[in-house]
Simulated scan of single mutants.
Amino acid sequence: MVNYTLKATCETVHVGGFSCQLPPVLQIASGDRIDVETYTGYYIYSHAPAEFVTPELLDICQNLPPDRKVGPGPHLLTGPVYIQDALPGDILEIRLEAITPRLPIGFNAIRSGWGALPQEFPDPALRFIPLNLETQTAEFPPQSGIHLPLQPFFGILGVATPDDPHSSVPPGHYGGNIDNRELQAGSRVFLPVLVPGALFSIGDGHAAQGDGEVNVTAIETSMNGSIQLILHKHLNLTVPFAETPTDFVAMGFGETLDEAFAQALKNLIGFVEKLTGISAEEAYILCSLAASFRITQVVNSPTKGVHGLLPKAILPSVESWEAPFTTLNP
């Protein structure tokens, strides 16, 4: 195992999307660890206060090469990382060991025509929100006495696809802009490998977000992370799946919440059925009794997300929880 440091620079970040044509900025072996830097605010830096715009971010925003602009999305991503021996059909595990805001400030933006209620809130708005890194809280609105606990996570964890470059906005089977607030430090995320080397990218740091992310953004901020990337050759998975310290997390994506919910439920039923050996009907009932389904996000057009949480505490001890992935399909 080797430990790497991946700084965010004009040579190591890309903006707007994913592309299998991007050359990797780092090549690692399965099991290696990376201390990674990410920045955010590429399209709003000129409106930001000085404490938000570090010299490194300013250099990226003013000098990013044209070939690092690969899609129409607003997200600045660090990567891609090439994992040796990764081939389509394999599974990439991302162990999120540490996630920490880089700066004591973040922003929230309403974009005209976006969000859950675009007609009710049609005007764009940009707010910068101080982060108290000592108390791990943010007060919003200012002087309101409302203190939000910081629960940092990366909104985007994704791999490249063999398709043409595509936007970083919608999530999908490749991961991408999942915006799942459950994926905090201590979690593991599993993504299908779709191109040789996987070409993994990370970014879109969120200091705090509610389920749904209803006004389009969280408290967006630049973020540090420590991750371990592990390649699995014996698993079969076609959609993102995750494990937190307390729950198994099945995900679903669709153009409607109904479609996203149905996919998340089917994925969780299949997982429970194979993990425990109970029937599909019994797993369906168990999900009704014990699983909690939540709206991941409704704003990453055209794809909405739902995730289902199954508490690990209710399950019997099993030799290998990974066994279900040998047959899990959406």
Rank of each mutant, 00 (worst) to 15 (best):
T5D: 02
L6R: 12
C10Q: 02
L22D: 09
L22F: 03
P24A: 12
I28D: 05
I34P: 01
I34V: 11
V36K: 12
E37H: 15
Y39H: 13
Y45I: 00
V53H: 10
L57I: 03
L58K: 15
D67L: 04
V70P: 04
P74C: 08
P80A: 11
V81I: 15
Q84K: 15
D85K: 15
P88S: 03
I94C: 01
I99G: 02
T100I: 06
R102Y: 00
P104H: 04
P104W: 02
I105L: 00
G106R: 06
N108T: 15
R111W: 15
G113M: 15
W114R: 13
G115H: 08
L117I: 14
L117V: 12
Q119S: 14
F121S: 07
F128G: 06
I129W: 10
P130D: 00
P141N: 07
H147N: 14
P149M: 13
Q151W: 00
S167Y: 01
H173G: 02
N177I: 10
I178D: 06
Q184A: 13
Q184C: 09
A185H: 09
L191F: 04
V193Y: 15
V195L: 14
F200V: 14
A208V: 09
I219M: 00
T221V: 13
L231G: 10
L231K: 10
H232T: 04
L235Q: 14
N236G: 11
F248N: 09
V249P: 14
A250F: 06
A250N: 02
F253T: 11
E255M: 14
E259Y: 07
A262D: 05
A262C: 01
K266S: 02
N267C: 04
V272S: 07
S279D: 05
A283N: 02
I285P: 05
S292M: 06
R294K: 12
T296M: 11
P302T: 12
G305N: 04
G308C: 03
K312I: 04
E319V: 07
S320T: 15
S320N: 15
A323S: 04
N329S: 13
